[in-house]
Design a protein around this nucleic acid. Structure first.
Length: 408
RNA sequence: GGAGGGGUAGCGAAGUGGUCAAACGCGGCAGACUGUAAAUCUGUUCCUUCGGGUUCUAUGGUUCAAAUCCAUAUCCCUCCA
């Protein structure tokens, strides 16, 4: 299987700017870039799913450059319905540093920052050197802008696409970049760059987008319980990652294996077959978790996450000593219990619940267990005596969320 | 600059003086079922010392009573210049 066929088979090709790209990907070694704006100080799993294509292309001999948008992040690309809240310059700087470090660690590619070539550009030069090449009518036709005409869009965000187009042209001149890859929502910005390059440099650049990775309900991959899954393992533990992945629904797990792992066609088809026969074993989900966590955090972390999950979900934890628990579940969110108190208060102090009302709702609704025992009395006193080795409580909220309560 | 229309909970959206802590939908959380799945069904979704307290862009005002009426500010949309 050649490069393009491989990408196609995995469902990673949505749009390509020209049919020639297929041949180029198969026969030439291209330098390409993929970018992200620094909206947070760590990448999340959405970045992972799209940046992985860079690693994939690199395996076929193409040269990846990761762009962190220190300049474009100051503007913000138009979201579907709302104007973005601007991020302060200090935050952008901080985020750029975080992402750059992470991108190098996880993906190991060259990282560039578009602030470097944008910061000294004057408004007049911007308008003359770039603005003159792009027709407003052309911009209005772009979906990313068009869908905002109803709700309103400021000039700031309107101009974003040109900034991104400038990056493409700059990287072409500076680094010989001829291809930009991105998620499908970036199509409009990619084509602006291609247009600029054609007009300004008289050269044909290429763009390719991949579909957003969605779950069975059409929700973006990685959206869970309101918290993002961060790639920084200090922000999201390997255990949390494992839990997210092991719960992948049957309908999409094979698709995820294709898109998010480096397993080849034969391997995936074999897993698919087994998975269809015995979905309840969740073998495919297990492999997915293994592949992704190993790639991101390393094998040690994967094993830890797996051991921890196994202990929590398929073994009787009441046999464990407090030491075992503290060792195995070190990454788990925990509450330091300063003094004995009713359960409803503990849940609030530990940030397990937002309010006492919620705390009571959960307790009386059978949703809270202490050391695997359901507690339904709001005023149940959490005492030292009741703790494992007079030290630790394993607090379970709902079916899957665990917290440690540790006596001081 | 002018004319008009708007700003309601995480989001969308009803409500146009008291029966409003605010319908409904989505989302979130939880329960049942299960495979730590999906689908489905059920409950719940401002805070509370359970007396009550604080909400409908903001600040003042009218009224026994305001999300609802008035004034000013502010932000957004549409059209005109």
């Amino acid at each position: 299987m050649n490069c393009f066929e491989d990408l196609k088979w995995r469902g990673l090709v949505k749009d390509i700017s020209s049919p020639e790209l297929e041949k180029k990907l198969n026969e030439e070694k291209l330098t390409f870039y993929i970018g992200t704006d620094p909206t947070a100080d760590s990448m999340h799993i959405g970045h992972f799913s799209s940046f992985l294509i860079a690693t994939r292309l690199a395996k076929y001999g193409h040269k990846p450059i990761l762009l962190i948008g220190g300049a474009t992040g100051l503007i913000g690309d138009p979201k579907p319905s709302l104007e973005r809240q601007m991020i302060s310059k200090e935050d952008v700087l901080k985020n750029v540093a975080g992402l750059t470090k992470q991108a190098k660690e996880i993906f190991g590619f060259e990282v560039v920052n578009n602030y470097d070539w944008t910061k000294d550009l004057s408004v007049l030069d911007f308008l003359r050197d770039y603005g003159k090449y792009i027709n407003v009518n052309y911009m209005l036709d772009k979906d990313i802008i068009n869908r905002r005409l109803e709700s309103g869009i400021t000039f700031c965000e309107f101009a974003y696409t040109i900034l991104q187009g400038m990056d493409f042209v700059h990287l072409y001149k500076d680094k010989g970049v001829t291809l930009q890859v991105a998620g499908s929502d970036q199509w409009g910005n990619i084509t602006t760059g291609i247009e600029l390059a054609r007009k300004k440099e008289d050269v044909e650049l290429y763009g390719m987008t991949m579909p957003l990775v969605l779950d069975a309900n059409g929700v973006k991959f990685g959206k869970t319980e309101g918290n993002a899954l961060w790639l920084d393992k200090n922000k999201t533990s390997s255990y949390e990652f494992y839990q997210y992945l092991i719960n992948t629904s049957d309908e999409v797990v094979v698709d995820y294996l294709k898109k998010l792992t480096f397993l080849n066609k034969e391997e995936i088809e074999k897993i698919e077959k087994e998975h269809k026969e015995k979905p309840e074993l969740r073998k495919a989900q297990e492999i997915l978790a293994q592949e992704i966590i190993t790639f991101l955090h390393g094998e040690e972390e994967y094993k830890k996450a797996k051991t921890m999950s196994k202990a929590l979900f398929s073994e009787d934890i009441t046999n464990l000593s407090s030491e075992d628990i503290l060792n195995n579940f070190r990454d788990m969110e925990h509450v330091i219990i300063e003094k004995e108190m009713p359960l409803e208060d503990l849940l609030v102090t530990g940030n397990i619940c937002q309010s006492k009302r919620e705390s009571r709702e959960l307790i009386s609704g059978n949703a809270i267990s202490l050391n695997n025992k359901k507690i339904t009395d709001n005023m149940y006193l959490v005492t030292k005596e009741g703790a494992i080795d007079k030290k630790v409580y394993l607090i379970k909220k709902g079916k899957k969320k665990y917290y440690l309560g540790i006596f001081n």
